[in-house]
Design a protein around this nucleic acid. Sequence first.
DNA 1: ATGAAAGCGCTAACAC
DNA 2: GTGTTAGCGCTTTCAT
Lengths: 335, 335
Amino acid sequence: MATIREVARLAGVSVATVSKYLNGTKVRDANARAVEEAVRALDYKPNEIARGLRKSSSMTVGVLLPELDNLFFTQIISSVDAVLEERGYSTLVCVSRSDSEREQRRLDFLRRKQIDGLIAVPTTAASDFVTLAGDLPTVFVDRVVSAAVTSGVRCSSVLSDNFAAAYGAAEELILAGHTRIGVLLGPDSNYTPLERRAGFLAACALHGIGEGDLFLSAGAYTVEAGYRMTKELLALDDRPSALFATNNELTIGAVGALAEAGITPGEEISFIGFDNRTLAEISHPKLTVIVQPVAEIGRRAAETLLGLIDGEAGGGILHLPTETIRGESVRRITS
Amino acid sequence: MATIREVARLAGVSVATVSKYLNGTKVRDANARAVEEAVRALDYKPNEIARGLRKSSSMTVGVLLPELDNLFFTQIISSVDAVLEERGYSTLVCVSRSDSEREQRRLDFLRRKQIDGLIAVPTTAASDFVTLAGDLPTVFVDRVVSAAVTSGVRCSSVLSDNFAAAYGAAEELILAGHTRIGVLLGPDSNYTPLERRAGFLAACALHGIGEGDLFLSAGAYTVEAGYRMTKELLALDDRPSALFATNNELTIGAVGALAEAGITPGEEISFIGFDNRTLAEISHPKLTVIVQPVAEIGRRAAETLLGLIDGEAGGGILHLPTETIRGESVRRITS
DNA sequence: ATGAAAGCGCTAACAC
DNA sequence: GTGTTAGCGCTTTCAT
């Protein structure tokens, strides 16, 4: 690869002139042309590594998340990347496999790579993660860090309004006449299940439905867990008349269990799913689902990070509204 | 961030000694301990950028693909990353959005970042892409480059054995008695549809089924295209008795169209899908699908790339076998 | 085994 | 406006 020196020599100017021209400082017209020509002739491409070393800015941001074979995360990366790319940043992706130790090692790795900022879906409790991140501008996605910890720290959060999402789902079912509802929840070790549970219970409480009428089951955010929980609920003597699955995997599992039991959502049992727009659309009848604004989450996370990098204050928590896609899987009943 | 200088000063040795110790060269025991302690005290993390500049190796590989909101690609990244990470490499992800110009710009960007190698699912015809990649060690995934072009060039290909996959699907249907089969194919502008079409036709020809008995429809690799093609085929007076969807999106679309038409796969119409293991499992009855060994593809691609980086010869084309997951969506008929 | 010093490719003072 | 030069943080001769 050609270096700036060779370009300078071929163009008959100094390296400083080449550098200046390439970075937008005015140079004499004749020199500009000479440099341009030399660059083309040598197919010169600036070495960003050297550039980064000198400017102590790598124009790289790290993205650290639990896994890559999950569309929720990768769609977020997708829009994060779109925004960052436009600003000339590149994206270094690392995976924690939901393992705290691994996560810490990867974070260490990213710091060695001199990333300018970080977008993370931490596995470690976010508040502890803040400590690890230190002074690195960081945006948490799908997790929040209590304001207490973040004060003065350069980090913010972007996520769906999970409380409102679950609240809305509950209302949807309650207004359709359902009082005995099964809820498939994720593990309490994650952050979002707590918000979703709280939102659901809040709506129920408001309508006089206590926990006694509800069938709350919690498990992993996996297809298997969704399948198993649904089967268990269906096997009950006084089984619920409606089901709410609170994440993509649980939704898939629930749909599978219902299909296997020969139950059509919206007939014997009403159903509200989460996130899997595609599954909702190809199901027959179409499913009612709550969908998170993944693209928007990614976009806002990236923009927030760029703000932090540019010195804006952190500490903000951005809750983005979810959307309810109404299919025909919620049936009005009169109890 | 602490530098190697500060570590040296605190440890009371020269930077050379610190560097040597950190890189595995033997140093006096007392010095080793002193360095270790200084590193801990300062929380020193080597600056990989500076390191890369000096060694002119960035320990970074680029991954360039059409999009990130597609599990086929992201699962591949996932296993690529797992392999590379183990060897100390990091992964720079770029997206072409299936746009040749954009792809070239992103490739340029990656080169500026001094990547040591590239894993690509090119949008540009792979043979042209080779020229762009130049001397950069490159592994093509899901695409091949004719041996003629690659001779002497440092690139190889890793992909599924698409011919055999489609051949197998055809046999599966033919042996069940089907002769009038609808095939949902992707766009001829991609590479894989060609192989899949050829494989399917080869099996048919062997069993005396000509193109006249087949219903080949080609379209985009999208859910909508799959849905539309399926509806069209179902609307025919002499509609086929079996359907084969040749990719994930087409499979989803087909399943949706069948559900909407009230057709249960494996009853009125037999069905073989592609890649969507999850959908196959939660469907009732379970679907028969051909699945690509995504994890293996990624793993082998990464290993192949590491080989190329280490100076191995390129030019190889690795075809990995697909797997047939048998559900109950193929029904034996007697015509 | 150790340290002084050169230099990877680039940018930013600084003097002209 | 241009060129000379120092130096980003590191590795690597090359003497010692």
